[in-house]
Simulated assay, not measured.
Amino acid sequence: MKLPVVPDNAVLLPIDMQQAFDSAPWPRRWNADIDRNGLALLAAWRAAGRPVIHVRHDSVMPGSTLGPGASGNAFRPGFEPQAGEPLVTKSVNAAFIGTDLDLRLRRLGVDTVVTFGISTDMCVSTSVRVGANLGYRMILVEDACDCFDQPDGDGTEIPARDVHRAHVATLRAEFAEVTTTVAFVEALRRPHAA
């Protein structure tokens, strides 16, 4: 896989790496490696001294497992923001809607946003699309994303892995560069790789 070019003014944007997604009412997920890959990205990014902006979904729906104060709202182990790493909270799918994320990025002089998280087809995809529409170069680390089995409306389910593949293909076609954890970490070691 071709290594992505990661400019010095890029930001890492983990999206909704929260505990709620591990249990009901959320359906089955497919990516058993999401935490391992996401933590590897964070470790490499932090070791390179790069800025991280975390995104957390604070649901406004009554009874949501992602609501503020619900145990599921908490970050997955290891994904908590560290000192100096800002947190953006949202209540809709796109991390840019109803938040100050765009303003934060512009103040930092960012033109490239590297992202991963849960779920590929919902908050990750929506955030990537909006970010691209706002003029950011978006890089999606696809094997550090996860999503759920989805009902197709005809009484059967589309397996989560297929949902993921279709959304990654669409994002690759128009909205983002797509890479893997291994390729991205290698690109950080060789920042001028093409």
Rank of each mutant, 00 (worst) to 15 (best):
M122K: 04
P77E: 14
E177T: 15
I34F: 14
L171G: 12
V6K: 05
T156E: 12
I34G: 10
P7T: 01
H57I: 03
S119M: 15
G69Y: 03
F175E: 09
L12M: 15
F96H: 02
L39Q: 04
A43M: 01
H54C: 01
D162S: 11
I53F: 11
R107S: 14
A166D: 13
R137V: 09
V60K: 04
A194D: 12
D152Y: 06
S71C: 03
A70T: 01
V124F: 11
G135Y: 05
S127K: 05
A32L: 11
H57S: 08
A47M: 10
G153M: 04
A187P: 15
R161M: 04
F184I: 00
D22K: 10
P159T: 00
R56S: 12
L134K: 06
P77C: 12
D162F: 15
F75N: 00
S125I: 00
F96A: 04
A193G: 10
A20S: 08
D8H: 07
D58I: 00
S127V: 01
V52W: 02
P151F: 08
E85Q: 09
N93G: 11
L12K: 08
A70D: 10
R46V: 05
A40M: 10
D35E: 10
G69N: 08
W30D: 07
M61A: 08
R189M: 07
L105R: 02
T180W: 09
P62N: 06
D22F: 11
T179H: 07
